[in-house]
């Protein structure tokens, strides 16, 4: 969009590109439409979404490669876990954090972080149970115990811990400080829909279409803090049980 296309030539050019302005009414000139586009919530980018659709599988595979191939090349669980978490960030930036939050349940994130820690501790404690020292890989009851014990620690331990914790930090920071107060369950899930309690249902019914609504919610969340905290007092009772 040139923005200076006030002449007849520029006008014809901007109205002829059918890809980007399909659902909009006929505009008088490009300047007005560019201002209008700045005003609407920027959630579905025509560039970012298809690119992320293409890039994300490769990046995820590469993260797994770095994790699994840490024994023979630079990399390992820490780097690979960070790359896998970055793929989730990428998807969240392209398709909306709320949609990603509903796709990637809290149980999965917690299972990654806690499971990784437990696997690491378990691999360390099995030799102790067999009469050895902590992390004495030689005593593990598997073939080639040192190599595959280390691989298990790197892949199932460190990689999953880092990926889970980074994804969790991302979601927690995206949600921000809880205005609903304290450790309430409803506030943890629903403090963004405190203004209008029926938006949550709309999110669940059609995820792909309603990301625009998510953008609206986030802006309302930032803008109206007073109304947010006032509604948060009554919000959890009204909107609890609607999420999962």
């Amino acid at each position: 969009m040139s923005g200076t296309g006030s002449g007849p030539g520029g006008d014809a050019e901007t109205t002829s590109d059918g890809g980007f302005g399909r659902d909009r009414p006929q505009r008088s000139d490009g300047r007005l439409d560019s201002e209008r586009r700045q005003g609407t919530p920027y959630t579905e980018s025509q560039v970012i979404m298809p690119t992320v659709k293409i890039v994300a599988p490769f990046a995820f595979t590469y993260g797994l490669f770095v994790t699994f191939h840490g024994a023979g090349s630079p990399g390992g669980g820490f780097q690979g876990g960070a790359i896998v978490a970055a793929v989730v960030f990428m998807i969240a930036f392209a398709f909306g954090i709320e949609a990603t939050r509903q796709w990637l349940a809290n149980a999965a994130v917690v299972a990654l972080a806690v499971g990784g820690t437990l696997v690491f501790a378990g691999i360390g404690l099995v030799p102790v149970a067999l009469g050895g020292a902590f992390l004495q890989y030689e005593l593990l009851p598997i073939p080639d115990p040192v190599k595959y014990g280390m691989e298990g620690v790197e892949i199932l331990g460190i990689g999953t811990i880092v990926a889970g914790v980074l994804i969790g930090l991302f979601f927690v920071l995206a949600k921000g400080f809880s205005d609903a107060g304290g450790f309430g369950d409803g506030g943890a899930f629903d403090d963004e829909v405190g203004n209008e309690p029926d938006v949550g249902d709309g999110n669940e019914s059609d995820d792909g279409e309603s990301t625009g609504d998510d953008g609206n919610e986030t802006r309302d969340d930032n803008g109206t803090d007073d109304g947010q905290s006032a509604a948060g007092a009554t919000g959890p009772a009204a909107t609890d049980g609607g999420e999962r």
């Binding site: 917690v110 969790g168 927690v172 949600k175 809880s178 107060g181």
Partner: peptide, 10 residues
């Protein structure tokens, strides 16, 4: 989680 007064990540 503790600093942000939350019990769940997602």
């Amino acid at each position: 989680l503790i600093v942000l007064h939350r019990e769940v990540f997602a």
